[in-house]
Structure formats: C-alpha cells, structure tokens
Design a protein around this nucleic acid. Sequence first.
DNA 1: GTCTATACCTTGATAGAC
DNA 2: GTCTATCAAGGTATAGAC
Lengths: 193, 193
Amino acid sequence: MGTKGNINRQRIVEAADRLFYVRGYNQTSFSDISDATGLPRGNFYYYFKTKEDILDAVVESRVESFSQMLDACMQATSDPYGRLQAFVSMPLQSEQVLQYGCPIGTLSAELGKAQSEHDSRVHMTAVFDLLRHWCVDQFVALGVSAARADQLAMDLLARMQGVVLLASVYNDRAFLQRASRDIQAWLETVIKH
Amino acid sequence: MGTKGNINRQRIVEAADRLFYVRGYNQTSFSDISDATGLPRGNFYYYFKTKEDILDAVVESRVESFSQMLDACMQATSDPYGRLQAFVSMPLQSEQVLQYGCPIGTLSAELGKAQSEHDSRVHMTAVFDLLRHWCVDQFVALGVSAARADQLAMDLLARMQGVVLLASVYNDRAFLQRASRDIQAWLETVIKH
DNA sequence: GTCTATACCTTGATAGAC
DNA sequence: GTCTATCAAGGTATAGAC
C-alpha cells in the first residue's frame, strides 16, 4: 500500500479537498491545510512533492467520491430512467452547492485558466468523464444509440452545471429545485423519443 | 470627469479586465498588470486604493461592455425573438470562450468562493442582473407574464452557462455550436406556449 | 515518519522624490 | 501625475535534527 494509505496523508487530502472546494485551489495555502489538519507545513513534503501533487490526490479522491454516489444511484433502482432522475437530484441533497457551487464545475473553471507554468488542463476532465460515461451508459440502456447517448449526456451535464451556477450566484434554492424538476421533465420527454 | 477618464487608468482597467479573464482574479498580480501596461506597480495606487477597487472597475467595465453587446442585439432586429436568438449566438462569436470559459460565469464562480475577509459576493451579480433583466424584457415583449419571463430568463442564462462551461472543459467547439442551436430551438418552442 | 527552522520569492501596499 | 525604492506579510519549498 506504500504511503498512500497513511492516515496523515488521508487527513491532508481530506482537508485539502474541502478547502479547495470552499476557498478555491489557488487561494488555499499550505498554512490553511496545516491549520485544518494540525500537521506542520513541512510534513506535507514527505507525502507530496508539490502543491499540484496534492491537487492530483484531491481529484483522485473526488473521482472515488462521485463514483460511490453513482453506485448509490445504481443500487437505488434497476431502471436507467430512475437512475438518471436520482442523478439529477444529487445537487439538491448537498447543503453547500448554493454557497460554493459545484465542486467539479468550479474547480474546472479555476483550473481552465492560464497557469503560469504548464497548462494543467488535464486534471478535472477525469471527474467529468466519469459522470459523462455513466450517463451514456444509462441512456444506452434505455435504447438510445451511442452517438445520441453521448449528446444527451453532455446536454444533461451542461444543464445541471448551468442550473447550479446560476443558483449559487443568486443563492436561490427555489430556482435550484424548480430547474432540477424541469431537467427531470425534459429527461422524460427525451426518453420517449 | 475626475481621474476616471484618465488614459492610464483606462489602460490599467483594460489590462486587468483581460488578465482577470485569462488568468483569474486571484492569480493576477500587480506585477502582471504592470508588465501588460508598462506602468510601474506603485502608480496603480494613485487610481485605486486596493486590488478590489480594480476589480470593481473591471466589473463596471464589463457591465458597459455587455450592455453594448445587448444594444447590438437590439439594433439587429425589432423582433424580440430574433434578439434572443442573437443573444444565444453571442458565445459563438467569441474566440476565447472555449479556452477560458465565460467571462461572467468563471469570475462569478471564483468570487463565490469564501474570501479571507468580507464576503464580496455582491460583485458579479451586477453583470448577471443586466443580462437577466434584458432577457426578461424580451420575453415580456413576446407576451409572456412577468413571473414566467423571469423563469425563462433564468433558464436561458443557466443553459448558456452550462453549455459554455462544458464546451470549455472539453474544448469542444462542435458541442458549443450544436448545443447553442438546441437552445435556439428550445426558445422557439417556448415562445409558442 | 514526524517536526522545526528557515531560505527564497512574490504579494499587496506605503513613502516620498520629482 | 508619474515614478523608484522599499516594506511587512505571506507564499512554496528545502534542509536537516529527532
């Protein structure tokens, strides 16, 4: 298992995960992570060579986290349509979405900006790919062609991202709920060709 | 006119506007603005007391900039439906949207994160409000009730934001074009009640 | 594995000459 | 109005004791 299962490493990743979400990646300093974990700054470099390595670990952690959420949607029902409905209602369950936006979307937007060094645009597509492919699977299971399924998956993710962004900008829970229902209604019409 | 019409002040705001878009607000330093304008760092404090004051000026600049774009949509046609169509196709005209996302959406996401000091969440709603109210006006002109018009305006902005976000994450121009056409088609069905 | 101390740089901001 | 010089604080990263 190497150092990857170390308890202190886990605490660092968990604290960084939350801080990157609440404060943003660039605005999170080693001191912030140190304060949150109680571990001294210098200790971080035993587990991670650079701050970007911490980011990689956080992204990996979010992939696993969202993977578990998708598994939960899978176990809720065997109906692909019901699974997609559960997927759409995911942001409604989160308390912090209105305050800090989508953890995937906001971090992607931040990392999509020009970095001083090498463009590390690769990072967040991993999480989006996970959701995208899962949605594609559900649409395909509903009898949609592969090409059309990918279109629908992109449309679905785009609509959810837009709704969450606007809802967080205006801190408008009513809009988040109403627009989520609209997406679910749209899903229904789309399935029926 | 005071110092607001000063040519050097304008250069600072223009450079900051571009840098805040390309690199993000937090990742843009006074040195960056200094390099872009040729003006020494210390000069900035003659026009702006803090970095946040520069941000305010940039937001004000973007409000004017988007206000002009909306005027262009207004003068293109007297048909509110055609004006909304022109509005939806705005991201297609921009070369940089695929690379850096929406200048309004990405900055809003960045500023929506918890700041160390006072929550300056107020900033970017100004630009969104501008677009929102303009869209409401167009829907109302089409005979929609005020309440329904605001719903449609929010839906439209959310869909555009989501499309631009996904398109920039995947650097996918084809998706941006296809999804924009879908939004325009949705607009048509919505107008016909 | 864990921690302290610190190097080195960049940041936003200030003081004051011209 | 414009510029240089500099400050104090904070950033990432490193060295090395324990």
